[in-house]
């Protein structure tokens, strides 16, 4: 029909030719893939070791004893006992206190940043909050041990209310871990709050809502699932937290709900055994792996649930 579209004879061939540049492209690809593979392989390796050692542990200690016994005394010379509950209880108690402190404070900070703060104050406050996330956790632990317990908890509870507060206790550990997770919660929640469509804010304001009405009645409910996910991620971080709790909460595996007493968390136990002299292949050493495995499964489950909720939340507004 139109002669001007007749095929030209000088066009480059569509077939691939092997040149130096295609070779380079291939090797870059392989290199990058290898780098990605390292972290995947490490993860798989760790999980593999955990599974194997856990299996060996359970060949010596029955599953019933692990979940049924309420005493954790792996180093007892006459009769070692491996009931996970004291460690689990210590872990959840510290995480619970941390949650009670960190969740509301982190959420309110997020609400301020996303709904109230001007661009200017946001640009100042956000980086400061993020610095908090960069403080090494051992500093927090030390802060709990040498400041929170002697200068905050003991004056209030011991001198004021007559409750015995030891140098190591759940409350101080919970408080410092709670402060530690504030940036996690506030930054995740802020993302979630800001992703609530602007149209809903405008609709609320146009109906004669105050900012507070809009925040509490519209934005928070709309962002609820995302906030729950942020909470779960932060709590899983609190559960996995090691140094702060090892220092502040002590290492006494008691099954207690008393926050003024020392406990031993799963992570603190792992530190203890790693640094100790338990022989390779001994039941003590293996107990380290089974605790690590439990910890891994708990935080993994929380992360998966949180990511799932978060992804569903994101889809809701797209």
């Amino acid at each position: 029909m139109s002669s001007e579209f007749s095929p030209s004879t000088s066009r480059p061939s569509l077939y691939r030719r092997w040149t130096l540049s295609t070779l380079k492209e291939q090797s870059i690809r392989v290199l990058l893939f290898a780098c990605a593979l390292v972290s995947v392989a490490t993860t798989i390796g760790i999980i593999g070791i955990l599974v194997v050692e856990t299996g060996l542990f359970f060949s010596q200690v029955s599953v019933g004893a692990f979940f049924g016994d309420t005493v954790w005394a792996p180093q007892s010379s006459d009769e070692p006992r491996f009931g996970i509950w004291p460690l689990a209880c210590g872990t959840f108690l510290v995480a619970g206190v941390a949650g009670l402190i960190g969740l509301p404070m982190g959420l309110l900070a997020a609400l301020y940043l996303s709904e109230y703060a001007s661009e200017r104050s946001r640009s100042i406050l956000k980086p400061i909050l993020e610095v908090l996330a960069g403080i090494p956790s051992i500093v927090f632990g030390y802060f709990g041990l040498v400041f929170v317990t002697p200068y905050v908890l003991q004056p209030i509870f011991m001198n004021g209310l007559g409750i015995d507060v030891g140098p190591f206790n759940v409350l101080s550990a919970g408080i410092v871990v709670g402060i530690m997770i504030i940036p996690t919660i506030s930054s995740l929640s802020e993302d979630v709050l800001r992703s609530v469509p602007q149209g809903l804010r405008e609709a609320g304001l146009a109906l004669g809502s105050t900012k507070f009405d809009v925040s509490v009645r519209i934005i928070l409910p709309a962002a609820l699932s995302g906030i729950i996910a942020a909470f779960l991620l932060a709590l899983s971080r609190a559960i996995g937290e090691t140094m702060a709790v090892t220092i502040a909460a002590g290492s006494q595996p008691d099954l207690t709900l008393n926050v003024f007493r020392p406990v031993e968390t799963m992570t603190a136990y792992i530190v203890l055994i790693s640094l100790g002299e338990a022989a390779e292949g001994s039941i003590e050493k293996r107990s380290l792996y089974v605790v690590a495995m439990s910890l891994f499964l708990i935080t993994l489950a929380m992360n998966i649930v949180a990511r799932f909720i978060l992804r569903r939340y994101r889809n809701e507004y797209q």
Partner: peptide, 9 residues
């Protein structure tokens, strides 16, 4: 508004 914006309620 131009874009209907019912609350997720």
């Amino acid at each position: 508004f131009q874009k209907s914006n019912p609350f997720p309620k």
